[in-house]
Design a protein around this nucleic acid. Structure first.
Lengths: 214, 214
DNA sequence: CAAAACGTTGACCGATTGGTCAACATCGAC
DNA sequence: GTCGATGTTGACCAATCGGTCAACGTTTTG
């Protein structure tokens, strides 16, 4: 009846969960080196030795957090349906990714810190899982372009652009809010409208680059 | 004849310069908390006490670095000419910003760490200098849109998008290279071509959002 | 209810870190 | 070349950090 996958007791599951939640908060705010076990322990409502009763080290907590993250993070891209309507699929991907930035900014920042640092911990996953997935979905995009159903651009950079634009609103939220000002409108609906315009126009079949020089 | 602005002696200027260069390298790689004075001292070819002879503290080095950065960083946006041709101006801004990401990735990462952390040090500058400049340039863009010379989008988010897309290639370079693979082409020319397509199509006068739903 | 397993913590430890200081070395002006 | 100003450093310090441990509660199980 009991699941009994990893943690045996109820209290063990609760505390591990509380620790991971607290660690996410602290790591996302301070980065790995900036975070301290005391901060995490206090945020989790536990003592530091107690925290180390559930996890062998600070590194282990961080690793646990990162491990689960990549799958969640890539779910929207995985969901890109080769059988769907091209523009609908891409725009849904953009919307879902932006929604993740809004709903999970801490996860986004945790990821950003890791990449900024040179991906010392999940580097292999980037050249493995991530690279494979991107190659697969880029092929789908390229096929759609071949069929003339969306305009032609470099498919991998198209994916990069979606990552950059959506994560920006989570990772650089302080800057966004500072620029928009204290009475600025909620940036999220604005961002969604902007991104819909951007990808709508970029991918409209028959779109050609505007004349720019000469 | 001598400039004699700040540092009096020749050796003082040289060493301060060496320290700032070394600190930029280390801070950009490890973040503020991750960097140590010993690392900076070694990279600068000095001893730690000697380093503290030129700067009063680790904080001071970091502050010095950040202080000079924002102006450099915003120079391309400042150069956006209200009297120029709209699409040429925007595309030149994009190109210059991308070039800065390529030529000054350490500065870009230093900035990224600061914002990620919540901009504890240059927060006021964001709501001051930066906000003013963006408002001014957004007004220029809005006027161009009113005149029908570029397509209408939210001007501030247009600027956000340029920051996000260009800095992505510097800050997330590890991820970009991992996804493109070891034998992947040089990402920079690809990125430039992609961004030119993107902004060319986004801003083409008369551009309308593609039909997406229903 | 006893005892074993599980859970919790104050006190402590070694390592690292930012920063100090007194002593020493070097340089530049006369 | 001498002497004061400038530059340099080994040794040291207090604070912080990740992690340990022995002792003490608490829960679960027979």
């Amino acid at each position: 009846m009991a699941t009994m996958r990893r943690a045996r007791t109820r209290i063990q599951q609760e505390n591990r969960q509380a620790i991971l939640a607290a660690a996410l908060e602290v790591f996302a705010a301070q980065g790995f080196r900036g975070a301290t076990l005391d901060q995490i322990a206090e945020a989790a409502g536990l003592s530091k030795p107690n925290l180390l009763y559930y996890f062998p080290s600070k590194e282990a907590i961080h690793a646990d957090l990162l491990e689960g993250l990549l799958d969640i993070w890539l779910a929207p891209l995985r969901a890109l349906d080769p059988a769907g309507d091209p523009r609908t699929e891409v725009l849904r991907y953009v919307r879902r990714k932006l929604e993740m930035s809004r709903e999970m900014p801490r996860e986004s920042r945790l990821f950003a810190y890791e990449i900024l640092q040179g991906a010392p911990r999940l580097g292999p996953l980037l050249s493995g899982t991530l690279r494979t997935l991107v190659a697969e979905k880029a092929a789908v995009l390229a096929r759609w372009m071949d069929e003339g159903r969306i305009a032609r651009v470099h498919p991998v950079h198209l994916i990069f652009s979606i990552w950059a634009l959506t994560q920006h609103y989570a990772d650089f939220e302080v800057q966004v809010r500072a620029v928009l000002g204290p009475e600025g409108a909620d940036p999220w609906p604005e961002a969604e409208a902007f991104l819909e315009s951007l990808y709508g126009r970029l991918l409209a079949p028959g779109a050609r680059d505007a004349l720019t020089s000469r």
